[in-house]
Every structure is written in C-alpha cells, then in structure tokens.
C-alpha cells in the first residue's frame, strides 16, 4: 500500500469548492419539495457515490482510487457528501422544464454528458486515479443507469403525490 500526499491539494480544493457551491445553490433555490423528499434526494446522491466508490474500487475490479490515500479518509467521505445535491438538482430541473413523452430521454442523456464532463474535471483535479485500463467513457453507462433510477424516484415518489402535498413558493 502506498501512502500519498495528504496536504490540501487541487483534489481537496475541488471537493470543498464544488461542495460549498452546490449546497449554497440548494439552500437558495426556491423550495419545491417537502423536507423528507429533499433529504431523500441528498441521500440518493450520497448513496450512488458511496456504492460505486466501494464497488468499482474493490478487488478484483480495482478500476480507480479516490483522493490521496488508499484507505477511506475524511476527504473521501466529504466527496460522498458533495454528490448529494446533484440528485436534487437533477430532479429539481426536471420539475421546472416543460415535458413531453420524449423529454426524459434527452434530459437523461444531457445530464449523463454533463456528469462525464464533471468527472473529467474531478480526474484532472486528482479526485479520481484510474487504474487497470479504466477510461472515463466507461462511466457513461453507469451515469445513464443511476440517472434513470433517480428519474424513477421522481416518477414514483414525487410525481405520483397529490399536488397539495408538494411545496410551491
């Protein structure tokens, strides 16, 4: 096991800046969901990040490592927390736009491309270190699946709720 640099570098700055901006935006956006729904969406984002970082990174896959240390550290946990608001934004923006039968397909595709671009930024910042031939476009099917599952959450838990139960300001 190799121990890498543990001082604050570009990867830690990336996590802090992205996390703070995301939570500030979440805080200042007009509320459209109940507290339970907001909290669940934050958890979905955190769960997806924790799940893939604890699955794709483990033996025998070992496709990437997160941040500077081979073991789980404070910055890894903070990166899971950082991902929370993105599920919220994904659902939030979908409730705002005008929709027809094909909107969800293009919406998920665009978000998957944005996610890949963000992952590329995170890789440049040193949050992810790819191993064993892993390349960034391998993440595309993962994003398509998790975004579709998040869309299922919207369809079954938010859209199906009676309108009076939702918050609108």
């Amino acid at each position: 096991m190799s121990f890498k640099d543990t001082t604050i570098n570009s990867n830690e700055l990336f996590i802090i800046i992205t996390g703070v901006l995301a939570y500030l935006l979440l805080f200042f956006l007009p509320k459209r969901f109940t507290r339970q729904q907001t909290f669940t969406m934050l958890l979905i984002g955190g769960y997806i990040s924790t799940f893939f970082d604890n699955t794709v990174c483990i033996h025998p896959f070992n496709y990437y490592s997160v941040n500077d240390t081979p073991f789980m550290d404070f910055w890894d946990i903070l990166s899971f927390v950082m991902f929370g608001p993105f599920s919220y934004f994904f659902v939030y923006a979908y409730t705002v736009i005008r929709k027809n039968r094909t909107t969800y397909f293009f919406y998920i595709s665009i978000w998957a491309l944005i996610s890949m671009f963000t992952e590329a930024l995170a890789w440049h910042a040193g949050v992810y270190h790819y191993k064993n031939g892993y390349q960034i476009f391998f993440s595309l099917p993962i994003y398509l699946i998790v975004l579709t599952l998040t869309m299922c959450y919207y369809q079954f838990f938010i859209k199906k709720q009676p309108r009076k139960n939702r918050l609108h300001k």
Binding site: I58, H59, F71
Partner: peptide
C-alpha cells in the same frame, strides 16, 4: 473487509 477494499 479491508483486504478486499484496499488492494492487498
């Protein structure tokens, strides 16, 4: 499960 997680 650290042996599985940390590339031993």
């Amino acid at each position: 499960a650290k042996r599985m997680y940390f590339d031993d």
